[in-house]
Design a protein around this nucleic acid. Structure first.
Lengths: 147, 147
DNA sequence: CAACTAATTTAGAATTATTCTAAAAAATAT
DNA sequence: ATATTTTTTAGAATAATTCTAAATTAGTTG
C-alpha cells in the first residue's frame, strides 16, 4: 500500500472512530491535519492549504469541520491571540510557548511544566482544562549599553 | 473632600503617573475602571457602562484608551474567549478561572498556583509573561445514576 | 440499483469585534 | 490669545466567524 493510501485509510478510520461521516471534505482536511507531525492551524490557513492542494472545500466547511473535530476530541482549540483561534492536533496534555507579535506557537511537552497548588474549582464547577501559555518576546541583543 | 472628588483625584494622578493627558474621556474611564475593586471588562462593556453614566465617549476612544492603559502597565489584556478581549485592572501576578460557555472570569491570587519546571525560553527570546487559565465547566449534578 | 431520508456542503449574506481615517475638538505651549 | 500637538470621533473598513437556505451527497431500504 502506498503512503497516500495509508494516510487515506488512517483518516477514514479516524473519522469512523469518532462517528463522523467520511465525506470528501472531512477526509481531505483530516489528511492535511493528521498525516505528519503535530501542528497548529487557523481556519484560514487550513483553507488556503486545502485550496493549494486542489481540494475544493469552502471556508464554512473548514470552520464546521474544525469545530466538529474539536468536539470529537481529536483537535484542541487554542485561544491565545486576540482575534483568531488556532487548532492543535496534539490533544495530549501539554502547554504552549507563544511568540508575541507573531503568529508562532510551539508545544511544550506536558512534563515540561508542572502546575502546583491548583485551587479547588468553585462550587458547582469542575476543571475542564488547565492552559498554561508562556508568552515570549524577543530578548534584546545587548551589544552595547543603552544610553 | 467627597469620595467623588477623591476618585477624580486618584484617576488624574494615575494618568499623570503614566504620562497620559488627563482628558475628560480618559479620566472618566479611569474612574470607572479603578474606583472600586478589581474588575475584568471588555471594550463593549465599558463603553455601555460609560454611556449609562452619561459619559459621552465613543467606542473607538474606549478601545484606544484600553490599549494605552495596557501599554502603560495599568491594565492587562486577557485573551481567553475566542472573539473578544478582556482587560483586567489587577496587574499584579495572578491567574484566572474561566467559566466556559459564559463570559465570567475570576482571579486566582498569584500565590494560589505555582508553575514549576518552566522550560527555558527558546534562543533569542525571553519570557514576557506566564498565563495560567483554569477552564471550568458546570459539574454534573449526579442525583441518580445516568442510564 | 432506484428512491428516499438525513446529513453535509456551500455561496453569500450577516454578525461581531476591532481598527482605520480624516476631520473636528480639546489640551498644552508660546 | 494663538499656534502646535494630541485626542476624540463618526463612520467606513477590515477580519474572523457564524448563519441561512438551497443544492449536493452519503447512507439506507425496498
Amino acid at each position: 500500500m502506498t503512503d497516500k493510501q495509508k494516510a487515506s485509510e488512517a483518516a477514514r478510520e479516524r473519522l469512523r472512530a469518532v462517528g463522523l461521516r467520511p465525506t470528501r471534505q472531512r477526509l481531505a482536511l483530516a489528511k492535511l491535519l493528521f498525516a505528519g507531525p503535530h501542528r497548529h492551524v487557523s481556519a484560514e490557513q487550513l483553507h488556503g492549504e486545502a485550496l493549494r492542494k486542489k481540494v475544493r472545500v469552502s471556508l464554512a466547511t473548514v470552520y464546521n469541520t474544525l469545530h466538529q473535530f474539536t468536539e470529537a476530541g481529536i483537535l484542541r482549540e487554542l485561544v491565545i491571540d486576540p482575534g483568531r483561534s488556532y487548532f492543535d492536533t496534539n490533544v495530549t496534555h501539554h502547554h504552549h510557548f507563544f511568540f508575541e507579535g507573531s503568529t508562532r506557537l510551539r508545544d511544550i511537552p506536558g512534563e515540561g511544566v508542572e502546575v502546583k497548588r491548583l485551587p479547588a474549582a468553585p462550587e458547582g464547577t469542575e476543571v475542564a482544562r488547565v492552559d498554561v501559555i508562556i508568552r515570549l518576546k524577543d530578548s534584546p541583543k545587548r551589544r552595547k549599553r543603552s544610553s
